[in-house]
Design a protein around this nucleic acid. Structure first.
Length: 428
DNA sequence: TCTGGGGTCCTAGGACCC
DNA sequence: TCTGGGGTCCTAGGACCC
């Protein structure tokens, strides 16, 4: 039998993690916010039942705290990342190949089942093991292509009768599910494509699976062609077990409050730059291109302004201070007085492997030795205590939180990554 | 007052080359 | 009157995902 692809993903991951450490909240509606406590990005089942929508602004649901006992959490990315890491370790024990697709889901390749029902049993075993090892509820979708496995896991979440596991390797079962699935629920089909597909009379996943792939390619793109083929059971994408190195690093934030002075904005950009370059060094890469952007809120009635600027460095590097010098100059060029800035960001791109760099005849080369040591030492110390060492342009520490700092009013403890935050079990 | 952040891939079109 | 054509590279923008 053919190899089988499984998609394992955590049910409402962020909410499930928060509940894992707060069993007292069991049964209550729980939501987790985006950064800055702006919008709702995760809801558990009771919260969904209250009609809270994905992406809904927090202020629109805040009345439900009083009325319905809604519990709100800020995004605790450190905590979710750590639980994700633990889950991946458990999943690795089931499969030779694993693609960590996102923080809350992974594709696995599994040997095909030897008898009817064997695959479903394996799916249940995976689900049970993740729950035992990590404490998180997952859904498991099994099929022969990634797109079908995605569809299967979606069905495993949607239909309670499946109890979280769907084996979609059987073609008859495939057709049945495809015909009751709206095309907009297919992986890779967003709102724009849905609209265009509907205009062609393609409404269900089945319609797409049965369409002529060549025609789809001509009208849309190779991406959608692949999707259509995968729905029909033809494997077009393999697992990415050793992902390509990243193409860009972005660090951007909406501000906690509007920023109206240049020095504050520079502080924010400097902090984003420090974070981005730290990530760059972690990946052992050097970057040649730097982009900054600043903008006002697109939602308010304030006068609008948005601008960005990209600079090429004379040579690729990973030294924070080099980038910081550029950021200041670039901000001077795009800063305009009189606006209430809501968001800014820094992007690094055009990466190189530092061990394969060309020597530049016409530009001074960086004096790498000393700077390298400084950066490495800084990363080491900051790795132990976040934010212990900072550049002057990032602003003072231990003062009142700067205006640009994001809001995290409902942040839970870092239960698993800080000694002072370890949960305490009370035994009666 | 209050609407996320971090990615990827593809395509069209312009610049440039011979 | 009559103004090449094909290939490649780059970039901006669109669409998607979680």
């Amino acid at each position: 039998m053919n190899q089988v692809i499984a998609l394992v993903d955590v049910d409402s991951m962020y909410a499930s993690v928060e509940l894992l450490f707060r069993p007292d909240l069991h049964g209550r509606p729980v939501v987790v916010c985006s950064n800055n406590d702006g919008a709702i990005i995760t809801r558990n089942l009771p919260a969904k039942a209250l009609g809270i929508k994905m992406g809904e602004p927090l202020f629109k649901v805040q009345h439900l705290v009083q009325e319905k006992g809604l519990v709100i959490f800020s995004s605790n990315t450190t905590l979710y990342g750590d639980l994700s890491r633990r889950m991946m370790i458990t999943l690795e024990s089931f499969a030779a190949e694993i693609e960590e697709y996102s923080v809350d889901e992974a594709f696995l390749t599994l040997p095909g089942g030897s008898h009817k029902g064997a695959l479903e049993e394996l799916g249940r075993e995976i689900k049970a093991r993740v729950y035992k090892d990590v404490g998180l509820p997952v859904s498991v979708g099994l099929s022969t292509t990634k797109t079908l496995a995605k569809l299967a896991s979606r069905a495993a979440k949607k239909y309670p009768k499946t109890v979280g596991v769907v084996d979609l390797t059987d073609p008859i079962r495939q057709r049945k599910l495809l015909s009751i699935t709206d095309v907009s629920d297919v992986w890779g089909v967003g709102s724009k494509l849905t609209k265009r597909l509907r205009a062609l009379g393609i409404h269900t996943a089945m319609d797409l699976a049965e369409s002529d792939p060549k025609d789809i390619r001509a009208r849309f793109s190779v991406m959608l062609e692949r999707t259509a083929r995968e729905l029909a059971g033809v494997r077009c994408t393999e697992l990415e077990t050793a992902p390509e190195s990243q193409q860009q690093i972005v660090c951007s934030r909406s501000f906690g409050s509007r920023v109206t002075d240049k020095s504050s904005l520079n502080e924010a950009l400097a902090s984003f730059t420090a974070t981005a370059t730290e990530r760059l060094r972690k990946q052992a890469r050097v970057a040649k291109s730097l982009t900054i952007f600043i903008r006002t809120s697109p939602f308010s009635n304030d006068p609008r302004y948005s601008n960005s600027l990209t600079a090429e460095l004379p040579y690729p590097c990973d030294d924070t201070s080099i980038f910081l010098g550029r950021v200041r100059v670039m901000l001077n060029k795009i800063w305009r007085d009189g606006y209430r800035y809501a968001k800014a960001g820094v992007m690094l791109s055009d990466f190189y492997d530092p061990s394969h760099l060309q020597v530049d005849l016409f530009n001074d080369q960086p004096q790498n030795g000393k700077r390298d040591t400084v950066m490495r030492l800084m990363d080491q110390i900051n790795g132990e205590t976040r934010g212990a060492l900072r550049f002057g342009s990032q602003g003072q520490r231990n003062q009142v939180a700067p205006r640009w700092q994001m809001n995290q009013s409902f942040l839970s403890p870092r239960y698993t990554t800080r000694f002072s935050d370890l949960p305490i079990a009370k035994i009666r």
